[in-house]
Computed example of a mutant assay.
Amino acid sequence: MIVHPDSIRTGDRVPHGGETDRTVLDFSANTNPYTPDGVEAVYEGALEASRRYPDDDYPDFRAAAATFVDCEPERVIPTPGGLAAIRLAMECTLEPGDEALIPYPSFGEYAREVRLQGASPRFVSHDELLAVGDGLLEECRLAVVCTPNNPTGEAADPDALAAFAARCGEAGTTLLVDEAFLGFTDLPSAARLEAEHVIVARSLTKLFGLPGLRAGFAVTTGEQRDALETARRAWSLGTPAACVGAHCLRQDAFVRETRKRVERERERMRQALEGRFDVVPSDAPYLLCDVGDRSVDDVIASAREDGVAIRDARTFRSLESHVRVAVKDRERNDRLLAALGVLEDGARRVDAGDDTDEGTTSE
């Protein structure tokens, strides 16, 4: 259950979105521009509590996370972010020489983490993954589903995912479901399946606008749960992350308003962007755009000249002419649309009554 030494020496880092220049409006990372009310006060209180080690059982965080995904608290495994949950799942599942079924185009860390365990990724198109043959499933120790998929944005149908999970169980294949962006939808978590061979990875920080906090969790059951609980690092969440995370997970009104805003703004942006690009339908807080015969470098550079950073999606497997843009709030989205030369089109299609964001959101 450790990273394979040879893989470290031959592996590479994976490029991601995220803009370090604070003077640039960042649409390359898919994070909420708002955080729930009360976060600062909770964080301040957690700083004093940080003078001691956290309670390694994390009862309050587990309870909040369990309510959020509708499972029992003991099934929750606290981790410092969703990616840490993914690595923990792979550490407990894969051995050198194993194969893992990985969707593409999708989050680049899946293949990297598989290789770091000394295993090999077998790539399958993201829109064909749930229908792969049983023979292929039997050859793979692990299968990964990303819902909504990053960067394409479509969420898996819950019934189709449940059927795939059942087939994975019959094939002896562990199923890892990455739900990093599922909180932006009202779809149920795969935690409801309560199957020992199913591991769910969740990230708090995208939905709640705190990517630097590093808080997340895994959910599974039975012996698999025991394995992850034993393998997770001691004090796997810092006190601020645990306290703020538990607070955020209980902000139902914030989550509802975020979902409404993202759905409304995503549709408005899609209509505007389709005047210039081919836009992939999405259930997520981002849109994948094919720039066609335009230069991706020129599109990115032009937007940056106007103070907006967008994601070069060519770093995703099989994408050669794409960019990805996040969905923020109306004011920020208008700046993006203006930088991409489509604001007038988008503004014309939006009802004037849709330009406010109400709810318990604060910057």
Rank of each mutant, 00 (worst) to 15 (best):
L101S: 01
E95P: 01
A89P: 13
D98R: 02
E91Y: 09
S125T: 09
G135F: 08
A89K: 02
L136P: 03
P103F: 11
R122W: 00
I102V: 15
G82I: 02
G135R: 11
Y110T: 03
P80T: 02
A89C: 10
P80E: 06
I102T: 09
P73Y: 04
R87W: 09
P103T: 09
V124L: 00
A89D: 14
R87F: 06
R87E: 07
P105C: 09
P96C: 09
E99T: 11
S120W: 06
A85F: 12
E113L: 14
P121E: 10
I77Y: 06
E109N: 14
I102F: 08
E138L: 10
L130Y: 00
P96E: 05
A131G: 10
I77H: 07
A119D: 13
M90V: 12
A84C: 08
D98G: 03
E95L: 14
F123I: 01
T79Y: 10
G82Q: 08
E138P: 03
L94E: 13
P96R: 10
F123D: 00
V114A: 01
P103D: 09
P78T: 03
L137C: 00
E74Y: 12
Y104C: 11
P105N: 08
A85T: 03
A111D: 11
H126D: 08
E138H: 13
A100M: 09
E95G: 05
I77L: 10
R115V: 12
S120M: 13
L88Q: 03
F107Y: 14
V124D: 00
V76L: 01
D134C: 04
V132A: 05
L130R: 03
E99C: 08
E113V: 14
R75S: 04
L136S: 02
G135K: 14
M90C: 06
P103R: 13
G108E: 12
R75I: 09
L88M: 07
V132D: 08
D98S: 04
E74V: 10
P103C: 06
E91K: 10
I77E: 02
P80H: 05
L136W: 05
A85G: 07
A111N: 08
L101D: 03
G135T: 15
E91G: 08
A111L: 05
L129G: 01
R112M: 15
G97V: 05
V114P: 01
P121C: 03
C92R: 04
